[in-house]
Computed example of a mutant assay.
Amino acid sequence: MTTLAIPDLAGKAVLVTGASTGIGAALARAYAAQKCRVALHYNASRAPAEAVAEAIRDDGGEVFLVQGDFSIPADVERVVEESAQHFGRLDGLVNNAGGMLGRIAYADQDEAHYDAVMDLNARSV
């Protein structure tokens, strides 16, 4: 597959949240292919995140791996701060972290579950 070069992205520092698998991992790889410096966030999927980071490094990219639970506001702040400190700045952010926290029928959801889903998917942004 040929990657279209976007010269304006080269050297930019980008944080991709939820980047251990799926869309986030693909975005992290795509930014790295554009010569971006990538902060790769993950929560529980450490091994897949390390595999993405290794693939980026193997292709000559620069990556910073950072863990955080985005349902916890202090973790969100820490991930952003550590990423910015590592690269000296952040030029871009992809808010990809999220999840359903289990498949529960709407009628069966209680307030605690609803709040947990909102904390992860909306408030963390």
Score class of each variant (00 low, 15 high):
residue 44 A to F: 03
residue 116 A to T: 03
residue 37 R to H: 07
residue 20 S to T: 09
residue 47 A to T: 15
residue 81 E to G: 12
residue 92 G to F: 05
residue 82 E to I: 06
residue 14 V to K: 07
residue 101 L to K: 10
residue 55 A to W: 08
residue 38 V to L: 01
residue 82 E to M: 11
residue 66 V to K: 01
residue 104 I to V: 15
residue 47 A to F: 02
residue 63 V to L: 05
residue 111 E to M: 13
residue 38 V to K: 01
residue 25 A to K: 04
residue 75 D to N: 14
residue 77 E to K: 15
residue 119 D to H: 03
residue 95 N to K: 10
residue 73 P to S: 06
residue 96 N to T: 09
residue 92 G to K: 12
residue 44 A to P: 00
residue 123 R to M: 02
residue 35 K to G: 05
residue 35 K to Q: 13
residue 101 L to E: 00
residue 51 A to E: 15
residue 13 A to K: 04
residue 26 A to M: 08
residue 76 V to W: 04
residue 36 C to M: 08
residue 120 L to V: 03
residue 118 M to L: 13
residue 72 I to N: 13
residue 85 Q to P: 03
residue 10 A to D: 09
residue 32 A to M: 12
residue 7 P to C: 05
residue 35 K to F: 06
residue 36 C to I: 15
residue 43 N to M: 03
residue 16 V to K: 01
residue 53 A to S: 05
residue 52 V to C: 04
residue 88 G to Y: 07
residue 48 P to V: 00
residue 58 D to H: 07
residue 54 E to N: 11
residue 64 F to G: 03
residue 14 V to L: 09
residue 4 L to E: 14
residue 98 G to R: 03
residue 36 C to A: 12
residue 77 E to M: 05
residue 99 G to N: 10
residue 43 N to D: 13
residue 124 S to W: 00
residue 36 C to F: 06
residue 97 A to R: 05
